[in-house]
């Protein structure tokens, strides 16, 4: 987890559905102020863990403490007052306008209506949604709806934000912009978010990698990359590349007519020798890319499977 004291602590969470399906098993994590990301493919247990942490899904076993209170203990309200939760498809009431929806979210968090409205206006302004107060939610674009979701989760000024796939359905540019906006508006809150896109997780302070209902790796992104991946990826594009061979200093992982992919620990030394060898073999080279290792490679190294949305 990040350096600050934890606001969220989860111990040995397990969720087994009545039909016997195991959604998560033995999941423990801690999150302090800053951005903590749960990374993993769909069905890896991220959403289940977030739902349990937010207090919307009861675990079969395990314990979650938020702001020092047990989410599933006798005191129902206190830990939940500390949480702002946005599921992947945030429900908005179609009969209400944008500002009325936010006011309703404020009311269910116990804010008086005038305070809800004041805070809703401030959040709309901060998230670039001013002027849309009276619109229906169904009239908003995908990106506007995502920003409204963040506003709804922030309306009660919670210390902990739990966001399930907050950038789902957005293009890469909009995703990057939303993450930076979220960081700015949320300030020093503890944000726990999930994503299946490794590039997004690289901006986090701390990452938990989920695979088949378990946490298989955790750490700051740089630390994870350093721990699990020591090679770079060299991608050669052109034609006649089906002849590309495995070499001592560069291992071939993929070869096709127009593309060959190598992994190597020392790309600077390997690259000129690799190009020379391929040209000798009659391949025609148009472009060579060297990709530094990222969380996609970490995921591959840890699970042996390529991540969804990876490079």
């Amino acid at each position: 987890m990040s350096g600050s004291p934890p606001l969220v602590e989860a111990y040995d969470l397990e969720k087994v559905y009545p039909d016997g399906t195991v959604a998560v098993r033995g999941v423990s994590f801690r999150a302090g102020r800053g951005l903590t990301i749960f990374m993993g493919p769909n069905g890896s247990g991220k959403t289940t863990t977030l739902s349990i942490t937010a207090g919307a899904l009861r675990p079969t076993s395990g314990r979650v403490l938020v702001c020092g209170y047990d989410v599933w203990g006798r005191d129902w309200s206190r830990p939940r007052s500390c949480i702002g939760y946005a599921p992947q498809a945030m429900p908005f009431r179609e009969k209400l306008s944008v500002i009325e929806n936010l006011t309703w979210y404020g009311l269910i968090r116990g804010l008086p209506p005038w305070e809800s409205r004041r805070r809703a206006r401030w959040l709309l302004e901060q998230l670039g949604l001013e002027g849309l107060e009276r619109k229906k939610v169904s009239e908003l674009s995908g990106g506007q709806r995502r920003r409204l979701t963040i506003a709804a989760s922030l309306i009660g000024d919670p210390e902990v934000l739990i966001l399930d796939e907050p950038t789902s359905g957005l293009d890469p540019k909009a995703r990057a912009s939303l993450w930076s906006l979220l960081r700015r508006v949320a300030g020093d809150k503890a944000i726990i978010a999930s994503t299946h896109i490794p590039d997004e997780a690289e901006g986090a302070d701390y990452v938990y990698i989920f695979h088949r209902g378990r946490v298989v790796a955790e750490g700051a992104p740089g630390e994870l990359i350093g721990r699990y991946v020591r090679y770079s990826r060299v991608i050669v594009k052109g034609s006649g590349l089906e002849v590309a061979p495995t070499m001592e200093w560069a291992r071939l992982v993929e070869a096709g007519w127009d593309r060959a992919v190598y992994v190597t620990e020392d790309p600077e030394e390997a690259l000129p020798r690799l190009v020379e060898r391929l040209l000798k073999l009659g391949a025609r080279i148009e472009r060579v890319e060297v990709r530094k290792p990222g969380l996609a490679e970490v995921f591959l190294a840890v699970t042996g499977e390529a991540p969804e949305g990876g490079a």
């Binding site: 937010a54 919307a56 206190r78 429900p91 979210y105 269910i108 116990g110």
Partner: peptide, 14 residues
């Protein structure tokens, strides 16, 4: 069905 219950359960409402 519409997902409102999920956010209500995760809210401080008893």
């Amino acid at each position: 069905r519409d997902g409102t219950l999920t956010v209500l359960l995760a809210s401080p409402m008893r």
